[in-house]
Simulated assay, not measured.
Amino acid sequence: MMITPWSEWDLDALCARLLLIGFDLDNTLANSKRPMSAAMAHRFSELTRRIDVAVITGGRYELVVSQILDVLEPTADLARLHLMPTSGTCYRRWKDGRWERVFSHDLNADQRARARASLERRAREQGLWVERVWGERIEDRGSQITFSVLGQQAPLEAKRSFDPDGTLKERLAAAVAVDLPDLKVHAGGYTSIDVAGQGIDKAFAVRELASITGVPVERMAFVGDRMEPGGNDYPAAQAGVRGVSVTCPADTLVLIDGLLERLPAPERSVRAGDR
């Protein structure tokens, strides 16, 4: 397993073997729940013309639309874009002028109800059902139930300062896992817990990408801000991709600039009408 900070990578060596690059979304491509900046949208759009690009995020598909798709430039090559929201439990590709769902591993009604009940009960027991929240506290994403201690729309500064070493989040995840032995419970973002089907995380997403695209995992890279053990991007590196650690979208912007300098320029333009 190889995880290296973005500034320490030999980009010439990386690009020489790279056939697909994946990105986390929040705090990697864009600030939490916010659209990509104009500068990022430009670089990201250009990157899709050079290489296959995957977005693997714990967020729901609607956030992928508002944070990425809605701000892409007309020149982006959508056919080379792989969208894997809710930690890879769902996979969409551009086909015949629309984003077609290739698969979605949805939880059934009983699993969703038990997940919601356990998350609330255990959070109350542990004093994590806090009085002030920003937005929805428990979100049903179909293939994933996500509990956010401070709410889905909490500001990044509040998230980072609430549980800096992850102790509270890990304790909550462990308690919920006892209630839901048939499901996978894991710490997600800074203050969130995700519940999905067994064996489904970003490692699962990477392996599915390799199987469907034919690109070996060792010829992929994944860029994320939570690449440390216990972070929600760490499983991607465990699957065998080259892990690239960033701290914020500004790091990712500089990284993509380096990739664009080294990856071959596209041979054709993608017209808006082709989208």
Rank of each mutant, 00 (worst) to 15 (best):
M220D: 03
Y190E: 13
S192K: 02
L168Y: 08
A158H: 14
D140G: 03
A265S: 14
L255Q: 04
V270I: 15
V215S: 01
I200M: 15
A221R: 05
G214C: 07
K169S: 12
E136N: 07
G231F: 00
D225H: 05
S161A: 15
E261S: 14
G243F: 04
D179M: 02
G224Y: 06
E157M: 07
V133I: 15
L263I: 11
L150S: 05
P181R: 04
E261G: 10
I212N: 01
L209Q: 04
G231K: 01
R262Y: 12
V254I: 14
K202C: 08
I145W: 00
V133N: 08
W129M: 12
V130I: 15
D182P: 03
Q238V: 12
G189D: 03
V176M: 09
T213L: 01
I212S: 03
A123V: 10
G240T: 08
A158T: 05
Y234A: 12
A187V: 13
I212R: 15
G258F: 09
K202L: 09
A158F: 10
R171P: 00
P264K: 09
L209N: 07
L263W: 13
E228M: 12
R262K: 13
A158E: 15
R171Y: 01
V244P: 00
L259C: 07
T167W: 08
R124T: 13
S143M: 02
D140Q: 05
T146N: 12
L156W: 10
K159E: 14
E170F: 11
G127V: 12
K169M: 10
E139F: 04
A237F: 04
G197V: 00
R207W: 07
V223F: 09
R242A: 13
G166T: 04
A173I: 06
L259T: 03
G231D: 02
L180F: 09
M220Y: 02
V241Q: 01
G189R: 02
P164Q: 05
